[in-house]
Design a protein around this nucleic acid. Structure first.
Lengths: 333, 333
DNA sequence: ACGGATAGCGCAACCCGTTGCGTAAAATAG
DNA sequence: CTATTTTACGCAACGGGTTGCGCTATCCGT
């Protein structure tokens, strides 16, 4: 059996489809008795509106696209949760796409989003993305785009991310105040904006506390394997850091494995502080002191901003939001 | 500027919209010169098809709905990743909904899915869901539904999950073979099918190895807090288990925190084995021996099954797939 | 009783790509 | 040079809900 349409109801009641349509949405032009009849019949027939038709007509889709490099285990699930909550509350749904950190796939995702006619787009850029020209199609059609977490510094688009500079600064300052002298850092890919910002904060805090920035104590890596290998090298050096700052949960997970495998004791052999979404630090013994950044908040804020942009098209499209972070003092330094 | 339609191209070239439509899809009825002209103009104007119109016409949406209790940090991200990979490859996209483990919200999600006209549905049921009558609307309209991970035993629908009985059996057998005598278990909510199956495997293994099933060594909890409280109580008992089986990563994360806080040593004070997606066990010191179940594989398998059901409508809709698990031997027992 | 207001509903176009059918022109066959 | 086929394209309806406009019937005021 095919689905019940407004015309089916209309025929049954011998009224026009437009009357049924208006009756169902309590349009004042329709008499109460007609409204009642229509609603009763609609109910009996199990009618429900075909959103595809409505959206097509209104040139809306009530869908947001969400493009991520991948669904990780730390930050992104929380972020997606936050995004989904807000969008849902506002009557939108979320279509997710994974770009696998490939620029080419990111472009594919964009094409898909356009073909679905998404009403807005949330994007966490791939590490390969150097410019955002491929998003211009959306700007032309007045479809707002909000960049989240991984952004491009030069781009003048709306974006939401955490204040990585402050987070790193706070972390390193904490180490400095506890008299750690040889502070190292473990960072992601050097070229990413997110890495640069956090490293700037790292250096600034060292500087403020009169500590030297030692290049040899800082390692970078684009994958878990790279991080592990480089960190192991660092531990084998003659002169080792007495404390390390860690840029993300992913990196923390890698570093912890090496520390455990090497049988080192935290904080005795090496102190650790991390920027984290706040779960992993509690699984580790001792619990890792961290700078809390909330994927959930980032997601909610980004979704809110996107909805703002849709509801107030005149609003500046270049709003930048940097969310604050805070220290959670545990046992690792 | 509004988006370019097939009629815009038609007007420009003084042909009919149908000619443009056919030209763009290489229909043999259209002459080569016309095809070339159409394609060139389409390109110049930046035309791309309006999927909303097409899908509406075909009564397809090329969307799958995915309803989850929530986006967790262990199993579900991997599962979503697997689902997304397969669906994407087959030309579908994924709309995700969170039911927050509420039956009412689950029903809301279903309504949304229907209104979007999803072509298929993947569902991980809430803990409140006792029957699946609210999915009957899909059955009537021949829209396939695949249940994933959290299922209802009685329901005769397609489903994909891991073989929880075997996983638990293997785990407990491993403990038994290593001469642990007092084996306890930490389980989720008693009423869930997923819990029942794993507990059956737990008991069966004890039975096979002539070990007693001790109710006092088994705890249940529906939340992290409950688990923590109950597990702490268990540790304070006079007679304590010498090894514990843990049913999920979420529970493992809670148990580990208590063990750390109590200053117990694994496996000396208590041995641990868990069913896990395979990340958390490596973050813990010592690394936790676990039964590997793959959210990624579950996701891929479920998506494959769903696509099968769409492409071969005659196929039995009641296919049950239980994925195998395997032991990963680490250092916790 | 007459003019204007208002309530209540229908008509038809619209959104845009697709597709069955029809047809004129060109090509081929006989 | 007809008769038939083939080529190449156009027409119009379809999908389903929405909406501006127009029309009729009733109601109210004077």
């Amino acid at each position: 059996m095919s689905r019940v349409t407004i015309r089916d109801i209309a025929k049954l009641l011998e009224v026009s489809p437009s009357t049924v349509s208006r009756a169902l949405k309590n349009h004042p032009d329709i008499g109460q008795t007609t409204k009642d009849k229509v609603k009763r019949v609609a109910d009996e027939l199990g009618y429900f509106p075909n959103n595809q038709a409505v959206n097509f007509r209104q040139r809306k889709s009530k869908l947001f696209g969400l493009i991520l490099p991948e669904l990780g285990r730390f930050f992104s699930p929380d972020m997606v949760r936050g995004i989904e909550e807000i969008t849902r509350k506002k009557g939108y749904s979320l279509v997710i796409f994974q770009s696998n950190d490939s620029l080419e796939k990111e472009k594919e995702c964009i094409t898909l989003c356009r073909s679905f006619g998404v009403d807005g787009l949330l994007v966490c850029l791939t590490r390969e993305t150097k410019d955002i020209d491929h998003f211009q199609g959306f700007a032309k059609n007045d479809i707002p785009v909000v960049f989240v977490d991984k952004v491009i510094k030069e781009a003048a688009n709306a974006r939401v991310l955490i204040n990585g500079f402050n987070a790193a600064f706070t972390a390193v300052q904490y180490l400095a105040k506890r008299n750690y002298q040889k502070i190292g850092g473990v960072f992601a890919n050097k070229n990413l904006t997110i890495t640069k910002r956090r490293k700037e904060g790292f250096k600034a805090a060292l500087d403020k506390h009169g500590l030297p920035y030692n290049e040899r104590f800082c390692i970078h890596g684009s994958s878990v394997e790279e991080i592990k290998a480089h960190f192991l090298q660092l531990l084998k050096q003659v002169e080792k850091p007495d404390a390390i700052f860690i840029m993300t949960d992913e990196i923390l997970s890698a570093v912890i494995q090496i520390i455990n495998e090497e049988g080192l004791s935290i904080p005795h052999d090496i102190a650790v502080i991390s920027i984290s979404n706040g779960y992993l630090p509690y699984y580790i013994n001792p619990k890792i002191t961290f700078i809390k950044h909330s994927g959930y908040e980032v997601g909610k804020t980004a979704a809110d901003l996107l909805i703002d942009l849709i509801e107030n098209p005149k609003m500046v499209l270049q709003k930048h939001i940097e969310l604050a972070t805070y220290l959670v003092e545990l046992d690792s330094c």
